[in-house]
Amino acid sequence: MNEDILLTSGMAGAVLDVVHAAVVVMDREGRIVLFNKACQELTGYTVSEVENRYPWDLFILPEETEEVKTVFSKLAAGDFPNNHTNYWLTKSGDRRLVEWSNTALLDDHGAITYVIGTGIDITERSRAERLIETHKIELENLVAERTYKLHKANKKLERMAHKDGLTGIYNRRYCNDTLEREIRRVVRDAKPLSVMLCDVDFFKTYNDTFGHVAGDECLKDIAGIIARTFHRASDMVARYGGEEFIVVLPDISAEEAAVLAENLLEAVWDRNIPNSSSSIADRVTISIGVATIRSDRLFEVASLIRAADQALYEAKNAGRNLVRQRSLNQ
């Protein structure tokens, strides 16, 4: 395209003025030779105010000047088309983010005569995108926070589902699940497994004499004594029903279990919870049935519990505040 045609053609100016995009035409040195209506509306400058001046002297932020000059130099050297985004300063001092698509015009000999920049004001779009991204991050954080809280609540509910509401120790359901796991481990590792069933002696008469509130406090007290006595990570203490408690002791032999059971009897005795309704002592006592098994094949939880229950029955019949024991060989 001939330079005279570009500069003198009213048609070119008219065409550029109806284009919604900002169009700026510069000579090889970077001086502005055409500045369409969209450019004027974007910047607030008139054609006469920008003609023969450099964009970086008028519109470009100081920190972006070198980058824009580099882009222009590449265009003037024949590296076109190219694209870049930068801020333009308006006459009133506002910043507008403009996305540029740049190319060049050549003369009949292939030499670059003009560089043309076509820009779209993406300020509002960019703000909207940033706002969306901010909301997205806030939403992700909110979801993560709610998920974490839900996870904690579920864990709490899970723990509550495993715990006895009165005493705070494990309940019968969790005990049975634990025993199922321990039975598989016993078979796999060929290690002993002992179980204790502990029953509060004369608890019905204790309740009748002192009332249910005192009875509940007594059960909580006994549960605490048992839990403090069996505190290995592998030990499991649970309320098995009413005034009955169970202790699961992995890797504990029959001989060791007998000693531990006697220690528990002594700990309850030493706690000295008054019980004038007892016919064997002036305090609350317990009876304990112990069962121990070592097996190389799977067996039912019920068989181990049944053996401990039979031993407990023997302790009760023998006078209470006693330990009786059974061993299972399978």
Rank of each mutant, 00 (worst) to 15 (best):
S279M: 07
S279E: 14
S279F: 10
I280S: 05
I280W: 08
I280Y: 04
A281Y: 11
A281M: 06
A281W: 09
A281S: 15
A281Q: 01
A281G: 05
D282T: 14
D282Y: 05
D282A: 13
D282E: 14
D282Q: 12
R283D: 08
R283T: 14
R283W: 10
R283M: 04
V284I: 13
V284F: 09
V284S: 08
T285Q: 05
I286F: 07
I286A: 02
S287E: 04
I288Y: 02
I288E: 06
I288F: 02
G289N: 08
G289F: 07
V290N: 09
V290Q: 12
V290S: 04
V290L: 07
A291S: 10
A291D: 05
T292H: 00
T292I: 02
T292K: 08
T292N: 03
T292G: 03
I293P: 05
I293E: 07
I293K: 03
R294A: 12
R294Q: 15
R294T: 15
R294D: 01
S295F: 08
D296C: 09
D296N: 15
D296M: 13
D296I: 13
R297Q: 15
R297I: 13
R297D: 13
R297H: 15
L298A: 14
L298F: 11
L298W: 10
F299I: 14
F299Y: 11
E300N: 02
E300Q: 13
E300Y: 11
E300I: 01
E300G: 07
V301W: 02
V301F: 00
V301M: 11
V301C: 13
V301E: 14
V301N: 15
A302T: 15
A302S: 12
A302G: 10
S303Y: 06
S303I: 14
L304D: 06
L304M: 07
L304W: 07
L304I: 07
L304K: 00
L304C: 03
L304Y: 03
I305G: 08
I305Y: 03
I305N: 10
I305E: 02
I305C: 00
R306N: 13
R306V: 05
R306E: 14
R306W: 03
R306P: 02
A307R: 04
A307P: 06
A307N: 06
A308T: 12
A308P: 06
A308M: 04
A308N: 04
Q310D: 11
Q310S: 12
A311P: 06
A311V: 09
A311D: 07
A311Y: 08
L312E: 04
L312K: 06
Y313P: 00
Y313T: 09
Y313M: 11
Y313A: 05
E314I: 11
A315Q: 01
K316Y: 04
K316Q: 02
K316I: 11
N317A: 12
N317G: 13
N317V: 10
A318P: 06
A318R: 04
A318F: 01
A318I: 01
G319V: 10
G319L: 06
G319S: 09
R320D: 00
R320I: 11
N321C: 11
N321K: 03
L322N: 11
L322H: 11
L322F: 01
V323Y: 01
V323H: 02
V323C: 09
R324I: 00
R324T: 09
R324C: 15
Q325P: 03
R326N: 10
R326H: 09
R326C: 08
R326M: 09
